[in-house]
Amino acid sequence: MPETEGDDDVLRVEHVSKRFGAVTALRDINLHLRRGEVLGLLGDNGAGKSTLMKIIAGFQNPDEGRIVVKGEQVSFRDVDHARSLGIDCVYQDLALVNELDVVQNMFLKRELVSRPIPLLARRVMRERTREALERIGINIPRLDVPVARLSGGQRQAIAVARTVTSEADVILLDEPLAAMGAKEGAMILDLVQQLREAGEVSIIMIAHNYVHVLQSCDRVNLIQGGEITFDKPTADTSVEELNEIVVEEYRRARRAAQAG
């Protein structure tokens, strides 16, 4: 049984559908996120997770349904509009510019300007970049190198640090552990735990590892075939239960394919 929506919901997705030509990526999606909650979103590749994130982040528009942010229905014009309403995202493709250095990517389209003379506050941005990376425990010795020269884990860390140090009320993490080694991944999970304990932001985190979700999140949603089929507090579920649901859906789909 899906969790009940409440007055403390900072975000609601109601009856959202999205099609790409003949392919239906999302069908009648209903999702809600409470203030200060960490929601884990699980699902196989192609289930619709990233499409849903892009809609919530203002990158794409739904074909049907609506988005409600802090009790107000919104229709995002673009990513900047969503960000102005307190929603920020770490995309799976990271949204970094390879030719720009670490500091420039950290403040991409968020540049700090000194006053009264409108000049870029380069020293302040550099200091804040170093502080943000140290906060999540990632060491990048040089901040003046193009990010194309960094490792996958370092690039992922920049994208995560940029988002979690923003003024967002809702943070979307689209597979934040991708390209990271075990040590770096553990640091990101520790950061999510810190944010969860502080309760100042709400988070939706896409992940493939059931254990990570059960350890780091308050509630879990499972998306299958473009629909959310499971919604339960992590304290009331288990890896075995999630595996059972996924296996049963695989068997159902296989029977349907054989019958067709």
Rank of each mutant, 00 (worst) to 15 (best):
P2M: 13
E3S: 12
T4A: 14
G6W: 03
L11V: 05
R12M: 07
A22E: 10
A22T: 11
V23L: 15
A25N: 15
L26F: 15
D28G: 14
I29K: 08
I29F: 12
G36N: 11
V38M: 10
G40L: 05
G43S: 08
D44N: 12
G46W: 10
K49M: 09
K49Q: 09
T51H: 13
L52R: 02
M53A: 14
M53Q: 07
I55Q: 03
F59P: 00
Q60K: 10
P62K: 10
D63T: 08
I67R: 04
V69I: 09
V69K: 00
K70L: 09
E72T: 01
E72Q: 14
D78V: 08
D78I: 00
D78W: 02
D78L: 06
D78T: 06
A82F: 02
S84T: 04
S84V: 08
Y91P: 03
Q92G: 06
Q92V: 06
L94P: 02
L96I: 10
L96A: 13
L100K: 04
V103N: 02
M106E: 06
F107Q: 02
F107Y: 15
L108Q: 07
L108F: 14
R110E: 04
R110P: 00
P118W: 14
L119N: 06
A121G: 06
R126H: 10
E127P: 05
R130L: 14
A132V: 08
E134S: 15
R135T: 03
G137T: 08
G137Y: 12
I138N: 04
I138L: 14
N139W: 14
P141Q: 08
R142T: 11
L143Q: 03
D144E: 13
P146Q: 04
P146E: 08
R149S: 10
L150C: 02
S151P: 08
G153H: 10
G153Y: 05
Q156E: 12
V160W: 10
A161M: 10
A161L: 09
T163Y: 02
S166F: 06
S166Y: 02
A168M: 00
D169L: 02
V170S: 01
V170M: 01
L173H: 02
P176F: 08
A178S: 15
M180Q: 13
G181T: 15
G185N: 05
G185Y: 07
G185M: 10
A186M: 03
D190V: 05
D190M: 11
L191H: 07
V192W: 00
L195Y: 14
R196F: 11
E197D: 12
G199K: 11
E200S: 12
S202C: 04
I203Y: 04
M205L: 11
M205T: 10
H208S: 12
H208Y: 10
Y210D: 00
H212W: 04
V213G: 00
D218I: 03
R219V: 07
V220L: 03
V220T: 12
N221I: 01
I223G: 01
E227P: 06
I228Q: 06
I228M: 06
F230P: 01
K232I: 05
P233I: 06
T234L: 05
A235E: 12
D236I: 01
S238Q: 02
S238K: 00
E240G: 00
N243K: 05
V247R: 15
E249C: 02
Y250H: 06
A256F: 09
A256S: 09
A259P: 09
